[in-house]
Structures are given as structure tokens and as C-alpha cells.
Nucleic acid binder design. Structure first.
Lengths: 208, 208
DNA sequence: AGGTGATCTAACCAGTGGAAAGATAATCTG
DNA sequence: CAGATTATCTTTCCACTGGTTAGATCACCT
């Protein structure tokens, strides 16, 4: 017989394992249905082990949120660097929300975790810099950034909740490219076609 | 002594009383922290009485969501009729989210209730008509409506979560009037100043 | 080798949502 | 008005949850 495949008393890599399990559960059942005990079960440990590593349930969700903001920052950065278009940053935002739904849903439910956590604040601030296009926006950039952020954030959440009419199609990235050009924002770094003009005739068609 | 102020066995008006209590609890502690038992306690009945009237916890939250959509419809309608401006409909949307936070937070957490409930679907459809400006939108109106809805919805949720920079001020309605004009939407019924032109020079200033 | 601290389990607690059985009262039917 | 039916509410129970505590196990350091 094999040499006792008994799980060792110490897991050895429990923290990341619990994080993965948590994201998995949230992805399947939503953040509200996630329980410490179910997460611990999937990682093969007692629920008290999870509480030990994260303090409490909010601590685990805080870690998920922080990881989410870091991942978002990275993807926004990639989009900005690769495409050099503000629109593509917005598309990347929506893509992140859809492809990392578990993280996204936790990030924007601050009552579930500790939004004042240092790690979270840091990661969120880094993402905000990319969303506003600059780390020290003036009043106009601030309002324009808020408009852009609001639009893609609203689009992403409405999509995730199934609140968008199905005639718009079922590809959230494509929907973003159709809808976002209704925003008339003076692009800070790129010289693309004026979104306002493009939107004028009878609404942006495909807008590719 | 008074004739036995003992609570009668039958409450007589329990359903609305439970609804009010639920909204109160959610307003204080958020939808995730609402418990059937706490709601029942505030209404002075056992938690099984609440379950009897609403089937289960999701049933209670379904009723809250339906009520919320009806209230939203009414306020959007008032704003449209009174101001005859598309912008003011958006402002009314944000005002609703802030002043009826409990309802709003439930409405957009479909995992907490039964979004397919007939009453909810009906009430939500009525609100959608006002948000799109017409009950049979063409492709352009659909995209424009989605853009407008996304913007105000994103603005409202970001505001509620404390994700908007504080330099924008602390009056969400005023913020909406500053931010929303970045949208260039051909207004269907009113002939206001072209938002696009107004936004051009260096961003809309106050936009009153 | 021995001790120290980190990691994990077991056991317990109060609180939760749901279901079932029964108590109470309002209403219907004759 | 009496008796039966139905609607409403309570009590009680169950499995589950998050959090706490005491103790078991083990890695590591000197």
C-alpha cells in the first residue's frame, strides 16, 4: 500500500490556497453565499485555520479585494500601453469585471470587507491613477475621469446583473465599444478621431 | 389600569410593517446584514411569521426590490414631467439611489432576491421605459440610453461606495450635473443646448 | 536535544434561515 | 348563531454559520 497518503498536519501553503478557494466559491455562488467553512472545506482544513490566517471572514474578503485591485491595475496598464487609447482602457475595465467577476463583485461591496485596509487603499489608489489618466488631475480631468469611470463601471455592473437589453448583444467588450463613444472626453495623450463628431450623425455605428 | 395593552395575536397589518422594518434594517446595516429574525423582532413578531408572509428571506427582499422599482419609476416620471430635460431624469436617478439607498442596494443585488419574479419584472420594465425615453427604442436610442443609464448608475454606485474623489464635492446631485454633460446624447424631445458643444472648450463648467 | 513559536484541530457558543406542528382568531356557510 | 374552514402567528426543532478558546502537531533555531 502507498505510504500513508494522509494529509500532513501543516498545509504548507494555506493562505494562497484559501484565497483561490474563496475566489472559486464566489465565482460559483456569489460573494453573499461564500462561507468560511465552505472555503476551508475546499482547501481541506478546518474553518478555524482560515480564521487564523485572515483574522475573520472580512479579512479573507479584504485579501480578495486587494488582489482584485492589483490585477485590475495591471490589466488597465497593459491596455493603456498596448493600445494607447483611452477607450481601450475602458474596454479593459469591463473585460476585467466580466472575466474576474468574483474579484470585481467583492471590490465594489465594501460592506463585505475592510476598505480602509492599507493594502487595499494602496492597490485602489494605483488603479485610480490609471482611470483618471494622471496622478494629479485638475478639475476638468477629474470630472472627465469620473464620467468615464462611471460609464464603464455602470456598464459592467449592469451587464453582470443582466440589466442591459439583449438587443445590445452578448459581448460586453463590444457593447463597450458601441456605448462608450457617447462620452465626449478630450483625450489627454492620444489624437484619435473626435468621439463627439463620430457620435453625431445618428449615433456611433460599431465605432471600430 | 389600561385594558391590557397586550399585543393581539394577529398583527393585522404585518406585511407592510415587515417591509418597513426590512428597509430600516437595510438602511442601517446594509442588505447583507439584514436578518429575518431582526426584522421580525422590530415588527414584534416571530421570525416564522415573516417567513409565512414572504415565503423566505429572498421573498422579503423581492418585495423590497419591487417596491424600489415602483418608487424609482415614479420619481423618474416626476422628473421628466416637471423639468422636461433628460439630464434631470439622470439627476433624479442618482437622487433616488442616495435618498432610498436601502431599496437601491437591494435592487441591484439580484443574487439576494428573485429577479424573475413577475412583480419585479413588471416594475423594472416600467422604469426601463423612462430610462430609454421610449418603449420601443431603435438601435441608436438603445445605445444612447445604455450610455446614459450606465453613467448615472455607475455614478450612483461609486458614490454610495465612497469611490469618487472628494474633490468633486459631497453633493451627488451636483456631481451628476457636472459629470453627466460629458455625455453627448441627441435629446429626443427637448431642444436644449447641445451638450457636446457645451462640453467642448475645457469641459463643462458647472453646467447649470 | 530541547525549547519556542507558528500552524492547525476540536469543541463550543450564539445567531441564522427554514420547516413542521400546533395555537389562535377571523371569516365563511349553514 | 353554531360549526367548520381558513388565515395568521408561535413554538420548537434542525443544520449551518462565524468567531473563540484550549490544546495538538510540527518546523525551526540554538
Amino acid at each position: 500500500m502507498p505510504p500513508q497518503p494522509t494529509r500532513p498536519y501543516h498545509h504548507g501553503d494555506l493562505r494562497p490556497a484559501l484565497l483561490r478557494a474563496a475566489v472559486e466559491v464566489i465565482g460559483q455562488a456569489g460573494p453573499a453565499a461564500m462561507s468560511l467553512r465552505e472555503v476551508a472545506r475546499r482547501a481541506g482544513v478546518s474553518h478555524a485555520a482560515a480564521a487564523y490566517h485572515f483574522g475573520d471572514k472580512a479579512g479573507l474578503l479584504t485579501a480578495v479585494a486587494a488582489q482584485g485591485y492589483r490585477m485590475l491595475t495591471e490589466e488597465l496598464q497593459n491596455a493603456r500601453d498596448a493600445r494607447r487609447s483611452f477607450l481601450e482602457v475602458g474596454v479593459a475595465y469591463v473585460r476585467f469585471a466580466v472575466s474576474h467577476r468574483a474579484h470585481f463583485e467583492v471590490m465594489y461591496r465594501p460592506e463585505l470587507y475592510r476598505p480602509d485596509d492599507a493594502e487595499v487603499r494602496e492597490a485602489r489608489a494605483a488603479a485610480a491613477v490609471l482611470l483618471y489618466g494622471t496622478s494629479s488631475p485638475d478639475a476638468g480631468q477629474l470630472a472627465a475621469g469620473a464620467a468615464a469611470w462611471s460609464l464603464v463601471h455602470g456598464l459592467a455592473t449592469l451587464w453582470l446583473n443582466g440589466n442591459l437589453p439583449e438587443q445590445l448583444g452578448n459581448d460586453p467588450e463590444e457593447i463597450t465599444r458601441i456605448v462608450a463613444p457617447y462620452l465626449s472626453i478630450p483625450e489627454p495623450m492620444t489624437a484619435t478621431t473626435d468621439a463627439c463628431e463620430r457620435a453625431r450623425p445618428n449615433g456611433p455605428t460599431k465605432a471600430r
